[in-house]
Design a protein around this nucleic acid. Structure first.
Length: 747
DNA sequence: AGCACGCCGACT
DNA sequence: GTCGGCGTGCTC
């Protein structure tokens, strides 16, 4: 295999990064004539197999080390831009991920390398077939006029199958013509339908346009209440990027990418943007990847992974609903796509807009301290009023036992649907009932693996652990005392709420929207569109319904249990609850009459609920930011977590303890001091919460321990983790260690 | 991530 | 006697 010694003149030595779990690029000899440059894709031998890789650097005319293998071929792919390669290097270092894995994020989509296939179109020849059936007549009528159509379009237009088209080709009534491949996206027109913006919108848009024009890296928080027209504002920034000849990326939580958003975009720019989410086929993705690299594709609207597309002239990134937890990624590399988007923008010298009605605390602080520009829209556009929020104090006017919809809420629903408008019942709990117990002996069904309560899912006839995913059949008799007919469901889930709604409103068209129903993201996207189109009177949903949709006929929102989630002990619980309830109540009322939101709560005086009811987001942020600052929590400190997992609980715990010991035995560093527990970390002190204190959970058959690492501002968390893992004991006995560089919660 | 190599349980 | 399980280690 060694080919280096007798290499002819002009051979290159190239360092190639392969998309595997290896941190360093490997050196290969490239045959003369390939003329490889950094960013080019090649195939190389790696171990016993062959893989593709990307040239990371080229040493021209260097004397090749012996024993180098040779580059087998050059791949026909657009080069990976330098800025993207720099971003990959940075991301790998920051997330402590092997560089090859980081590269894989950016190249995975290109693996289906099939070049754009030419299409076959069909047109009428003028000849008539021998037998003219009604179907054939429809087909030929549809093809009249000399235009060409795809097989699918023709069949659809004539309401027949593609087989009829084939038959007509055989009989000479239609002919096939070769056509160039369909472009992945049609050209966009920045001036297609420029809107009339309100003064506040114009002001915000002006700042963004200015930043895009001057090609300056500049992050903005675009904060505006639901319905204030944030989308129109960032559309103007996109228009500016287009006018400048550049590209734009709009990132959204997976589920927010609906036909509705795409239509709005098309109404503004004449055509839809390229879509990028899990429902897009591998082949389509490969085409989008290429088109982004060649610059032919100008705007992509996509979920998380769109961040790694090889744009060649990226001028703008928009992160819509920036506070969404869905931006947190955990497959292989662990990263927060919102934060990585800011970094990517820095490498690209692009403008970045973080848009939200309820920004994350981190982003709010960045805006308040001036790191980010702060653009605000205080009122709904078009003088539409904000929804009226009213508490329902469940201690005084709650529903009867066994019901969860208070009389006042039920009456509001009845009035709403009698007007032909929509009502939304929001309950952030999947399943039928969160707890099942035996009335005879008091037995409670718990997860055998992690001790959480098992949630009854009546549609699936199962008991499910929402913690670790464990599923068991719901028995008919109590496993403890054997009593039959004694099992009682306690508390409501959306399924049970649907039952109650069906009893109260038997004639209403009701839909339950929950992420655990089969059908996946596709089905949910479709159902959300159906709701927007008025196909239902009452919608009962989990947090899915809160996310980035306009339901034009929705005028009433009922929050069934506003207190849910406030008692969990998670330091982010307040922030999450405030964001969720704000978003969900903000869905109410799109017309000139204000919408209504009824909030069922047992603690209307709780600071989060009170802030929500008064509509005073400022008070909420001030209070939450002060709390964070005192506790040294993000954004005033840094968190990281080491997740140790193994199939064997003892092995996982043993390794977690060994890591903890290794942390304390690290040689002194000028950057940090290691301490365990006991209050807040001192300046430059890294604190570790050990395995004895960390909760243990069983997820997908593996026991997990979490070692939380907490550090004040300025301490080098990455450096500490790198040092620790370098001296840490080897992982044996099926133990795996993953790193979470900024965990979202403590649990 | 793949893939080979290696050492222990139930089968043609 | 082997086939095959997946734990461990390596890839210029």
């Amino acid at each position: 295999m060694s080919a280096a010694q007798d290499e002819p003149e002009g051979a290159q030595v190239v360092d190639v990064l392969a998309p595997v779990a290896v941190d360093a690029p490997y050196s290969y000899v490239a045959p003369p004539g390939l003329g490889l440059r950094p960013g080019d894709s090649v195939t190389v031998p790696l171990g016993t197999r062959e893989t593709y890789g990307v040239v990371w650097s080229v040493a021209e005319g260097a004397a090749p080390r012996s024993n180098l293998k040779r580059v087998t071929a050059r791949l026909d792919r657009p080069p990976l831009p330098q800025k993207l390669r720099d971003f990959i290097d940075w991301l790998a270092r920051y997330t402590l991920t092997p560089r090859g894995m980081a590269l894989r994020l950016a190249t995975r989509a290109a693996e289906d390398a099939a070049p754009d296939a030419p299409r076959t179109l069909y047109r009428a020849t003028g000849h008539s077939p021998e037998r003219l059936t009604p179907t054939r007549r429809r087909l030929l009528a549809a093809a009249e006029g000399g235009m060409t159509f795809s097989k699918k379009a023709l069949a659809e237009a004539a309401a027949c199958t593609a087989g009829v088209v084939d038959a007509m080709v055989d009989e000479g009534a239609l002919e096939a013509v070769a056509a160039p491949p369909e472009p992945v996206a049609r050209p966009l027109d920045p001036d297609f339908a420029a809107p009339l913006l309100e003064p506040a919108q114009s002001l915000a848009a002006g700042s963004l346009i200015e930043a895009v024009r001057t090609k300056s890296y500049k992050p903005f928080l675009l904060e505006g209440v639901t319905g204030s027209g944030k989308t129109e504002v960032y559309f103007e920034a996109i228009a500016s990027a287009l006018t400048e000849g550049g590209q734009a990326l709009v990132m959204m939580p997976e589920i927010a990418l609906t036909a509705q958003f795409l239509e709005r975009f098309a109404a503004r720019f004449g055509e839809r943007p390229a879509e990028w989410h899990s429902g897009v086929s591998q082949k389509k993705r490969a085409r989008i990847w290429r088109a982004a690299a060649t610059g032919q594709l100008r705007v992509v609207a996509g979920a998380r992974s769109a961040l790694f597309l090889p744009f060649n002239n990226l001028r703008l990134i928009v992160v819509d609903e920036e506070h969404e937890g869905a931006y947190k990624q955990d497959d292989g590399a662990s990263y927060h796509a919102r934060d990585m988007a800011v970094v990517r923008a820095r490498f690209e010298n692009a403008t970045i807009v973080l848009a939200s009605a309820t920004p994350s605390i981190e982003t709010r602080v960045n805006a308040e301290t001036g790191r980010y520009g702060h653009l605000r829209l205080h009122a709904r556009a078009g003088a539409r009023p904000m929804p009226l929020l009213e508490p329902i104090d469940m201690r005084r006017e709650g529903p009867p036992r066994g019901a969860w919809i208070a009389p006042r809420l039920a009456q509001a629903i009845a009035e709403t649907i009698s007007r032909g408008e929509q009502a939304l019942l929001f309950l952030n709990r999947r399943g039928y009932a969160p707890l099942t117990l035996c009335r005879d002996c008091g037995h409670r069904f718990r997860c055998t693996q992690c001790d959480a309560w098992l949630v009854e899912h009546r549609f699936r006839r199962a008991l499910v652990c929402h913690h670790c995913g464990h599923v068991e059949r719901r028995p008919d008799a109590c496993p403890e005392c054997g009593a039959t007919e004694s099992l009682a469901a306690c508390g409501p889930g959306v399924e049970r709420l649907a039952e109650e709604a069906a009893t109260l409103f038997p004639d209403a068209r009701t839909l339950v929207l929950s992420s655990d129903f089969p059908g996946g993201a596709e089905r949910i996207r479709r159902e959300l569109d159906d709701i927007a189109n008025g196909a239902f009177d009452i919608v009962i949903g989990t947090q899915l319904v809160a996310k980035g949709h306009n339901f034009p006929q929705l005028t009433l929102v009922g929050v069934v249990d506003a207190d849910l989630g406030l008692g969990s002990g998670d330091p982010r619980a307040a922030e999450r609850t405030f964001q969720l309830l704000n978003q969900v109540t903000g869905r109410a009322g799109r017309g000139e009459r204000p919408g209504r939101a009824l909030i069922q709560t047992f603690q209307p005086e709780h600071p989060v609920i009170a802030a929500l009811l008064s509509g005073d987001a400022e008070a909420f942020y001030a209070q939450e930011i002060a709390l964070r600052e005192r506790a040294g929590l993000p954004p005033f400190g840094r968190l990281a977590a080491l997740i140790v997992s193994a199939k064997d609980a003892a092995a996982a715990e043993g390794h977690a303890r060994a890591l903890l010991r290794a942390a304390h035995e690290l040689p002194p560093s000028p950057r940090y001091r290691v301490a365990t527990l006991g209050g807040l970390p001192e300046a430059d002190e890294i604190m570790i919460l050990g395995p004895a204190e960390a909760p243990i959970a069983l997820i997908r058959g593996r026991f997990r321990y979490r070692l939380l690492v907490k550090a004040p501002r300025g301490a080098d968390v990455q450096g500490f983790l790198r040092d620790l893992l370098a001296t840490a004991p080897r992982e044996r006995g099926g133990v795996r260690v993953q790193i979470d560089v900024d965990p979202q919660n403590f649990m």
